[in-house]
Design a protein around this nucleic acid. Structure first.
Lengths: 354, 354
DNA sequence: TATTAGCACTCATAGATGTTGAGTGCTAAC
DNA sequence: GTTAGCACTCAACATCTATGAGTGCTAATA
């Protein structure tokens, strides 16, 4: 059977009204809509076809139809294609409010990202998550060891443009000033400008050798520093608006909802969402991906849809922004919002860099 | 009417069984329990009295009784009194598992506290929160300004024994090395050893004056540093196990539950819990306080009970650990658990200090 | 006087039954 | 190919009826 123009239109209409109402839509509803003037009976026939083709399904015999995952997929793909076309027109739209709120506390990246998650949740009424950027591709910019007191050294490492990591290191005795100076020089010569992922055992070994006679004593200083740099790699996840999912009755059965909320609280699982980059063709110019139902990488979220976008903090240093909602999600609005948001973040980060 | 021994026992029995079952308990249930051999009729009479006195209440005419807030209060007070007596016997109990898990990643205080919240939630099946310590009484230990690149200074401030704050400060041009050195000396002479709450405008003014001719240029450097120190004061709140509250049907109606979860997500409200220290007599030697129903300082939580304990990171630097659950909470277990936990934290922190 | 047995009464809960209305599929007419 | 018409299905809602746990009260008992 072929998906002709009329079928397509009907499918579109079904999905659109279902997105709005959340309830199965019947043939009469569609036939009353303007555009295509057909009786409910005709619609019914077409619907039967569409069901056979797998785009819609019936919750029970005498109910209207709801979109299947495949139906959503078709809808979204179509929408994305349209969006890609109208891309040029996409001018500055609703920026201001978010913009200001966001800019208010830009000084700490963590705060900013948390804020992004919050605003986004507030604007969309879905659950949101933002992952910290992946620092594997960043360079170390600055390293410094300081003696805080007789038994503690403080290592400060600045990674990328604005990320600071600290590590307290216990030592047995105060290290002479000139030695500390030497150490700092050593650290900076070896680490500054090196990208985080390049710091491997080999490099560490080389550095230890360079430390010469002090190698033994200072071994765990190196370890501490490496440790701190590494810890920058564990991407953090900020979530917000988790309780929004309770607003959607189809997810609201108390047990399922509980599981969902747990996944959101236990943020680790969400990292899966980020792992697979560009695995299929759905990525578009804004790095926006849509996962519908079973397509979601996290099993618990199989009744949900997830839309993710990519932001870029600086060249090669990226993170993801994700929106988690019911399959009956306002994909259009979500995609638009994400697109605007990443645009804004881009400008913010660009300005920062200068 | 007087609350004689028998009434007290009956009340106790009612509350205990209600805590277990969560369902209104009837006269027959009590009369069948061993201990006091009375017929259900007698129990009924006593129950009527207890209800008149306000310790229990009936959800509806033909149902059993459930404890009122006042009933819980009596029960908890009694339990706390007993606990205070048996205090000496309170030896090392169930430590190991928690202990190990906790110690695993002690190196960062934030991680530790988050972990504490998590373990506690896991062990008790309630929602938990842990507030970061209140640094107002801590001393600044170490301050350092470093030039990261031509336009950025990095201020590192170590507060208390282990808390590090960073602040990036934009400058217009590189500051000569010797000036930076002077500045560092200045900062350390004025700030080291000073408690955070003593850093006020006056002190800042004095410092600015001391900076002499550079005062103008360096003004916002001071501001930045002060800012960073101040930010240490905003107590952070870590929560965990929020979804646990969905397990208790009495809180589980989807809307109420949503509100509760929101409060937990929007952690700010929880700060109220900490504000009032020792306001009434219920504080005991472990700083454990129990808020029942309407006693909770946060209105949304009026159907819940909250138990808080205090931990001490170091002399005068304290934070709170809180458990949020249904009024039908296993107070005994919760109090015991909190007591053990604060004990453990004490030893951990004590060891840290050395 | 305190306790208890007995009884009528209440009421949430759960099941059975009926009604409604939205929606379908199919057939026959256009 | 489209549509009107009709019989059919079924979730949702309301109504009714046990059922049983639990009560309060009264009168008998120790």
């Amino acid at each position: 059977m072929e998906l002709d123009e009329r079928k397509r239109k009907i499918l579109q209409a079904i999905i659109k009204t279902y997105l709005e109402t959340g309830e199965p839509v019947g043939s009469r509803t569609i036939s009353k809509m303007e555009g295509l003037n057909l009786s409910s009976a005709t619609i019914r026939n077409e619907m039967a076809d569409l069901e056979e083709m797998g785009y819609i399904l019936q919750p029970h015999t005498s109910a209207g139809r709801i979109p299947s995952d495949a139906g959503y997929r078709l809808y979204v793909d179509q929408m994305m294609a349209e969006k890609a076309l109208e891309r040029e027109e996409h001018a500055l739209t609703v920026k201001d409010e978010e913009h200001e709120k966001l800019l208010a506390k830009v000084d700490r990246l963590e705060t900013l990202l948390q804020q992004v998650a919050k605003v986004l949740a507030y604007n969309t009424n879905y659950a949101t998550m933002v992952t910290g950027p992946d620092y594997k591709n960043t360079n170390v910019k600055f390293v410094q060891l300081s003696q805080v007191d007789d038994e503690q050294l403080l290592a400060v490492i600045v990674v990328g443009s604005n990320v600071i990591k600290n590590k307290m290191i216990d030592v047995e005795e105060r290290i002479p000033n000139e030695e500390l100076l030497k150490l700092n020089v050593l650290l900076n010569t070896f680490l500054t400008g090196v990208s985080v992922k390049e710091i491997d055992l080999e490099l560490v070994q080389t550095m230890k050798q360079q430390a010469g006679v002090y190698a033994d004593i200072l071994e765990h200083i190196f370890d501490g520093i490496i440790d701190a740099v590494r810890s920058a790699t564990e991407t953090e996840v900020y979530t917000s608006g988790a309780t929004n999912i309770l607003k959607y009755p189809e997810l609201g059965d108390i047990n399922r909802a509980g599981e969902l909320l747990e996944v959101l609280e236990e943020k680790k699982a969400l990292n899966h969402l980020i792992a697979d980059e560009n695995e299929d063709g759905t990525t578009n110019q804004y790095g926006i991906q849509v996962y519908i139902g079973d397509e979601t990488p996290v099993e618990t979220l199989n009744d949900c849809s997830i839309v993710t976008a990519t932001y870029e903090l600086e060249e090669g240093v990226r993170g993801k922004i994700g929106i988690i909602g019911p399959k009956r999600m306002d994909y259009d609005k979500v995609v638009t919002t994400l697109r605007n948001l990443t645009d804004e973040l881009d400008t913010i980060f660009k300005n920062k860099k200068t």
